[in-house]
């Protein structure tokens, strides 16, 4: 089914933050800290790999579109918490409360109200496009094409 593959390729978006990261070491640093934190929390709550991939995708797209405040150190962390929360809501069956999400030595702890507003800001900045094509979409496609249907394969790809 070539249609599905070409549709995936069509819908796949480039990471537009890439150039920004090359130009600004401070942004690259803040982003890498935020991603590291998100992965720790993903591990802590045993979220799926897709949740982590989505959270990073949301964060990159947000940082790219919302350039005005991204140099503030707390801003990236606030966005990271909100992005992870959104990704968990999109993908997970059990989602921790916003306050409980801030584990693994986060530098700042934000109130629920602040995070709820941030979620809305991110959603509207991303125009509610919460199901992007990710590398996992291709893995899933390839696995299905190869007929890898066993339980173990599915678990591995999660």
């Amino acid at each position: 089914n070539h249609e599905e593959l070409s549709s995936l390729l069509n819908k796949e978006q480039e990471n537009e933050l890439y150039d920004g990261l090359q130009e600004s070491p401070s942004l690259a640093m803040a982003r890498s800290e935020a991603v590291e934190w998100m992965l720790k929390v993903t591990g802590h709550y045993s979220f799926s790999a897709l949740t982590a991939v989505l959270a990073v995708n949301y964060l990159d797209r947000f940082l790219h579109s919302f350039q005005s405040h991204r140099e503030k150190p707390w801003m990236t962390q606030l966005a990271a918490v909100a992005c992870l929360s959104l990704a968990a809501k999109v993908e997970e069956t059990q989602v921790p409360l916003l306050l409980d999400l801030q584990v693994e030595e986060s530098k700042y702890v934000f109130e629920s109200k602040t995070l709820q507003r941030m979620e809305i800001l991110i959603l509207s900045t991303l125009q509610w496009r919460m199901n992007p094509v990710t590398p996992l979409s291709f893995l899933d496609y390839i696995a299905r094409r190869l007929g890898l249907k066993s339980h173990l394969c599915r678990e591995f790809l999660r």
Partner: peptide
């Protein structure tokens, strides 16, 4: 998976995707 992953105290090593 829902039950296994939601068991309290189950911790997967950070940065590695959870898998059983």
């Amino acid at each position: 998976t829902t039950f296994v992953l939601s068991e309290p105290g189950t911790q997967v090593i950070p940065t590695k995707p959870p898998k059983l």
